[in-house]
Amino acid sequence: MSKITINEVARIAGVSIGTVSRVLNNRADVNEQTRKQVLEVVRQLGYVPDAGARKLARGTRGLVAVAPFSSHASNSPYYAIIMDAVQEVLMQHGYTARVLEPSQADPSKVQAFIFPGLRLHDTRLEQLKEKGIPHVVIGRLIDQDTPWVDVDNFKGMQSSVLHLVKLGHTRIAHLTGSPIGQTTFDRLEAYHQTLADHNIEEDPDLILDGGFSELGGYRAVRQALEKGIEFTAIASASDEMAVGAIYALEDAGLRVPYDVSVTGFDDLEIAQVFRPALTTVKQPIRDVGHTAARMLLDLLENRPAGHGLLPTELIVRSSSGPVKRMIKR
């Protein structure tokens, strides 16, 4: 009988190798249901980690710090997927990834940094360059030689707004967040450009700040309705804000998509199970995390890393439909 491997445990449990490794090392960053699921598969298969698997799980070559731009960001579903994908690749090469800020990291222990999201004019990059510490950014950078990977945010949002325009919508609100990074600007610019390309007059009141959170999306849409702002569709820059927007519309007695169409961006798991199922822009989040980790490995091996721009795909579900009437409050 062939020896059971950590790869087989991960496949049967339906999780990543990195998740199995964290469970075997009793790490706290695994939810209890997943932990029980993995341990049950380990028990059923009779899996016993060999020396190589233990080395893989613990990481012996060094520590990589993953530094989100805010505590809220680090708790979002998007960053959970990114973190899992990064760990999956790095652990296969003997590295351990932890969420750490540069100010908290011990330079003698941290080998490199990955920044999933970055504020404009962030001073941390210059500090790392001066110290010669390898680093990769998840998010498009302009006029910088730092390696980065991102999705095509402009084309992604363009496809979302164009979808609504083709359905007959002209009063399209854009649910966005504070302009903290290039991602926000790229999605906002796509919204502006798509309306202009179709001779649709812009209304500044239709730019709603949802703070890239479900609660923020709820509050922004509720306030817009209370102010009497008219719209028949919402193009959200994230799935979380889109879900919050739908709750706000429902609380106001409006139906999605009959009264208002709503689209998101990310294609998180909730987009598929939410009702109505969310029309959204699918971005390959795990691929982004994998690519960032591989770029970092290139830097650690003194190989050039470059830049990467991954494609998006519009997934049409039941939260968007033809325009029927203008909403007036």
Rank of each mutant, 00 (worst) to 15 (best):
V86D: 04
V64P: 10
Q87I: 01
D84W: 10
F69Y: 11
S103T: 11
A80F: 08
A85F: 04
P68T: 04
G62L: 00
L90Y: 04
D106S: 15
A105I: 13
V66G: 13
L100H: 04
D84C: 13
G94C: 09
A67S: 15
A80V: 11
Q87W: 08
S74P: 00
Y95S: 11
M91Y: 03
I81N: 06
R61F: 12
S71C: 00
V66I: 15
L63V: 10
Q92T: 13
H93G: 03
I82H: 00
V86C: 09
G94R: 05
V89R: 12
Q87T: 08
Y95Q: 09
L100G: 08
R61G: 13
P68G: 01
Y95R: 09
T60M: 01
H72W: 02
A73V: 08
P77T: 01
N75Y: 11
M91C: 08
H72K: 14
L63K: 05
P102V: 10
L100D: 09
I82G: 03
S103R: 10
N75R: 15
D84H: 13
V66W: 00
I81E: 09
M83H: 12
A85T: 04
D106E: 11
G62T: 06
T60W: 06
P68L: 02
E101P: 09
Y78I: 08
S71L: 04
P102G: 12
Y79S: 01
S70V: 01
R98N: 05
S103M: 00
Y78T: 02
E101R: 15
A67G: 09
S71M: 06
N75K: 15
Q92L: 15
M83N: 13
P102H: 10
T60E: 02
A67T: 03
A105F: 08
P102W: 02
G94Q: 06
V86K: 08
D84S: 15
V99S: 07
S74N: 02
A85Q: 07
S71E: 06
Q104S: 15
S76D: 11
T96Y: 07
T96H: 10
V99K: 08
L90C: 06
E88V: 09
R98F: 04
M91K: 09
A105G: 13
A105L: 12
D84I: 10
A73N: 07
D84L: 11
V99E: 03
R61S: 14
G94P: 09
L63H: 01
I82D: 05
A97N: 01
I82W: 00
G62N: 00
A80P: 04
S103N: 05
Y78V: 07
A80D: 14
P102N: 11
G94T: 03
G94D: 07
N75A: 14
Q87R: 08
L100Q: 01
Q104D: 14
Y95A: 12
M91E: 12
S76V: 08
Y79E: 07
P77F: 03
A97P: 00
A73H: 10
A73S: 13
A65F: 07
S70G: 02
Q92D: 15
H72A: 15
M83T: 10
A67E: 05
L100E: 06
A80R: 13
E88Q: 14
Q92W: 06
L63E: 06
